[in-house]
Design a protein around this nucleic acid. Sequence first.
RNA 1: GGCGACGUGGCGGAAUGGUUUACGCAGCGGCCUGCAAAGCCGUUUAUCCGAGUUCGAUUCUCGGCGUCGCCU
Length: 301
Amino acid sequence: MNKSVVVLGPTASGKSDVAMAAATAVPNVHIIAADAMQVYRRMDIGTAKPTDDDQRQVVHYGVDIAEPSERYSVARFVEDVAVARKKISNAGASELIVGGTGLYVTALVDGLSMPGDYPKIRAQLEANRDTEALYEQLSELDPEAVKKIDPNNRRRMIRALEVCLGSGKTFSSFGEGIGAYPPVDTVQIGIKWKREALRERIALRVHRMIDAGLVDEVRGIMNEPKGISDTARQALGYKEIIEHIERRWTLEEAIDATILRTQQFAVRQERWYRRDPRIKWVEVQNDPIAEVTPLVVAALA
RNA sequence: GGCGACGUGGCGGAAUGGUUUACGCAGCGGCCUGCAAAGCCGUUUAUCCGAGUUCGAUUCUCGGCGUCGCCU
C-alpha cells in the first residue's frame, strides 16, 4: 500500500507503455507523468502523451495542466505534484512516476525544494552585465555555488545570483544539488536500450507522429490567440515543425532535424540517469512491456 | 573520346614547402535545484595512389585512379 515507484528511461524507450501495463495489473495505482512537455494541453501527438483511453483507465497527473501559451517550470511542477500526492494519498493509492525529464524525476524522488524566483532582480542581471562580471559577483556572494557553474553558463549564473540577491541567502544553501543521491524508499527502475536500437525506434516514432498529424497539431497551436510560449515551443518536433510551417525548412528537413535532436536528447537523458546509483536498470532486447513490467509490478505489490 | 576543374577526418569546409592541418556538424564523455525536449563544458578522427623535385611535401611537377562540368 502506498508505494512509490519510478519507471524511467530515454524518450521512445517504452516507459509509458510499461507504466500502463503495470498500473492496470496492480490495483489502485495512479500515474504521475514527470515530463516537461506533456504538461501542455493540446500538445498530444508530439509529446507522445498518454491517450484519453489510458487516462480513463488509470488516473494520471502531470498531464494537461498548462496552456501552451504559458511558461511552465520545475517549481510549478513540484507544486502541482504536491497537490496530486494529496489526492493519491486520500485514495490510498500507490504512485507510479513515469520519467522522461531528469530534473523533474529527481525533484520528486529527492524532494527538491526550489528556491523561489525574483523576476525584477533577474531582469536587472540579464540586462546589463557581461557574464564575466556575473561570475565575479557570484564568486564573492557564493563561492560554493560558483564551483558547480561553468563560467560561460550565463543562464545558470544568473539564476544563482538571482537567488542570492533575492533571498539574502546563498544559492548553495538551498540544497546539495542533485548529486547527493541519498537513500530513498522510492524504487527506480530504468529502461536501457542499445543505443543503435533506440535510435531506430526514435526515427520510426517521429515518422509515425508525422503520419498521425503532428504538422496540423502544431499549426493549430500556433494559430491559437495566445500562441505558444518560449518553453513550449522548444519541444522536440514542435520547434522543427514551426520552422517548416514558417517556410524556412522543408518538411523533410524538419523531420530529419527532429529525429536527430530527439536522438541527442535521448543520449542526454541517459547521461543524466546513469549518475544515479540507486536506479535498477533493465536491459531491454525488444519488448519493454514483457521485459520490464514484471519488475515494476513487483515493486508496486 | 576531348577539354577543364577538383580530390583534406563520418559529413561540410579552411590553410600551409617545415615543431601540433583552422572552423562548423555529427560522434563520444562530463556538468546541472525556476526556460531542463533547455543551457553549458571537454574531446577522438583526415591531406586518393605512385613516382619525381627538395634538406623537407598535404602544398610544386608527372602519371594513375576517381568525381563533377562542358564539348563531340
